[in-house]
């Protein structure tokens, strides 16, 4: 179990040790997202290699309609 802040909300994740697993646990598989971890962009190619640590702050974003 790991405590993280995701999109401003404190969460406990059970099955994730890296970003790729986090995507699966959050049911975001197949969705086009971009992720910032502790203020730094995590490139998609690095999802597997980017380990989560306790109290990481993540932002997970998508493109939506806007002007």
């Amino acid at each position: 179990m790991i405590a993280l802040t995701i999109n401003g909300v404190a969460q406990q994740l059970h099955a994730s040790s890296n970003i790729a697993e986090l995507i699966i646990e959050l049911q975001l598989t197949g969705k086009r997202v971009a992720i910032e971890r502790n203020g730094e962009i995590v490139p998609r190619s690095q999802f597997n290699n980017t380990l989560l640590t306790v109290n990481d702050t993540l932002e997970i974003v998508v493109a939506v309609g806007g002007g």
């Binding site: 995701i6 975001l28 974003v61 493109a63 939506v64």
Partner: peptide, 14 residues
């Protein structure tokens, strides 16, 4: 133009 927003966690990805 498009906006960039936090994804809705738990929303159906399909």
């Amino acid at each position: 133009t498009v906006a960039i927003r936090r994804t809705n966690i738990g929303q159906d990805a399909s």
